[in-house]
Design a protein around this nucleic acid. Structure first.
Lengths: 339, 339
DNA sequence: CTGAAAGCGCTTACAG
DNA sequence: CTGAAAGCGCTTACAG
């Protein structure tokens, strides 16, 4: 059915060795011979079997990207950055969705390794897999870049956005607007949430911290879940008084708060201020437009791709960490207290 | 570095044939022997090389999904449906983004074939690749399912949502609200846009059709682009009078109209009505919530996955077409004329 | 029940 | 410059 290198060899009247050489262009071949082989290749529309090739080379010119949720625009925007970089190097990028589950993430990574991708990018890897040594173990086998999700002491490679500083920027901004009673909205488990919470607690150390957990933070469903969470919060606290501002760990959650407020008849930013994180495109599409912290997602993706290519080509599985600055984006979901 | 079947054989004191047999469980092996082999596998943490295996089997237990844009939630929701189905069958799904470009789509498909995926799902394939015979050619080599993008006469397999009928539902609804001057917003090239436009022209046959093109319809950027388009439209037409309603070919465009209206100080739905298409989650997050046509994206994905599995397992590369009904979702972006 | 051998479709020393 | 042969890591008739 599909032609093999042997068919081409026969057609051109040469050995398969020679065919292989003209395909790869890695050894001298007499011009006339080469042309005969090329003609045969064209005639049969021959395409070398990548599986056979990779079996020998251990190279597939492809990379795998594992993301926690396809429906969180944060991740897809990072992937755009990865893809645009990889395209230049003619690497294929394959995306696999772990749904933010520890086991699933392991499985996806192992599958990529089984399929001999040349490297893997992990966006926001599960903390659990950092702690249990899995990521580190895997980093010994194959080039790995992690985007965010840093875990101290794990020997692998990171591109991080400075989420801690971003959190500080946002909190400081709210504080300058006069807000003291700031609620903190986070998802269940992720390094990123833990880190932000730490900063939050530090920041509001003299006050009682108001930390609330919403479910499944990396999926679009979190919007709805956070709206529901707000209903509960509003039963326990007087919004606009006991809580005058929300800091949400990502924009999806912030939009959930916005939607919840609308349902409750609470005006943003007049009655309560809301600040998100990430600056996904959605943050500009809601009303009011979200004040948020930009992570420069494309750059995050591009840097990770760049470093991965280096790792692949130079073979060094060293441990390096690169940090990218965040930027506060002021729009209209937060305003002075008692506006 | 990595152990091979030979290492296991040595460790267990058997031939590689026997090792292979216990791994695959496809031939009888004496219990005692099997246990020895299993112990060796465990001890070495042996994992068979999938490349070598696939080279023989021509099976990889993986499928490829080609989508026109990662940042259009329509596609990612369809993919969710595909994944949830495939998980049950233990097939891996790999996603590749064609950016809605004809050449890129070809390339992605060819790459998947090169890597011996067992089947491919194409979401909204490019019309051009339908017309030029590429999809049909490829369908002869490997099981293919297309989601939407139907093109008459092309021998491949489809799961379609009834977009024509959905368009009619939306248009009829607007008409019943009293709207006669309905503008039609579409992207550049896609079967889906052409089909909808056809219905639109049919529907408004006594009126001058008002068809407007926005750029790059399958990417989140279309939101911004459509807002800009609205500026131009508003220069040429009196919105609220010459145009009293917009029908947008997808929700992203509809949101663009919504945003544009806000900037222009036009109230939706009081001054102008807007109806979208797809019912992506975003349509509930904007204000006013979008009246739109639900395509049941998860079901679309699940059906495609189900059919693909059948194709793969029964080996029939037959041509079948399955249609899924759409449903009008009435929310608050459209209202009676002169509300 | 088990093993030696051929083969999947390539690449790459080695020899000429 | 070219080819025969070994080998990548498996599977599967074939023979016993």
């Amino acid at each position: 059915m599909k032609y093999t290198i042997e068919d081409v060899a026969k057609e051109a009247g040469v050995s398969i060795t020679t065919v292989s050489r003209v395909i790869n262009g890695n050894y001298p071949v007499k011009k006339e011979t080469r042309e005969r082989v090329e003609a045969a290749i064209k005639k049969l529309n021959f395409q070398p079997n990548l599986l056979a090739r990779s079996l020998i080379n251990k190279k597939t010119f492809s990379i795998g990207v594992v993301i926690p949720g396809l429906t969180n625009m944060f991740f897809t925007e990072v992937v755009q950055g990865i893809e645009s970089y990889m395209r230049k190097y003619d690497y294929d990028v394959y995306i696999s969705d772990s749904r933010g589950r520890v086991d699933s993430e392991k499985r996806r990574i192992n599958k990529f390794i089984d399929r001999y991708v040349d490297g893997i990018i992990l966006i926001d890897p599960q903390t659990e897999n950092m702690k249990n040594g899995f990521i580190e173990e895997v980093s010994g086998k194959i080039p790995i870049m992690c985007i965010n999700g840093y875990h101290v002491g794990v020997r692998t490679n990171f591109v991080l956005s400075n989420e801690g500083n971003g959190t500080r920027q946002a909190l400081k901004y709210l504080s300058e607007l006069g807000h003291e009673n700031i609620a903190f909205i986070r998802g269940e488990s992720s390094f990123s949430y833990d880190l932000k919470e730490e900063i939050y607690r530090e920041f509001s150390k003299d006050k009682e911290p108001l930390v609330f957990f919403t479910q499944d933070g990396n999926n679009i469903d979190v919007v709805e879940n956070t709206s529901k969470l707000l209903m509960e919060i509003s039963n326990a606290y007087e919004i606009g008084k006991e809580i005058t501002a929300f800091f949400a760990c990502n924009d999806l959650m912030a939009v959930g708060i916005l939607n919840g407020c609308r349902e409750l008849g609470i005006n943003v930013p007049e009655d309560v201020s809301v600040v998100g994180f990430d600056n996904i495109i959605l943050s500009q599409m809601v009303n009011p437009k979200l004040t948020t912290v930009d992570q420069n997602m494309r750059l995050l993706g591009e840097k990770a791709a760049e470093n991965l290519i280096n790792l692949i080509q130079n073979g060094s599985l060293s441990c390096n960490v690169e940090t990218i600055d965040t930027r506060l984006i002021i729009r209209s979901s937060a305003s002075k207290l008692n506006y």
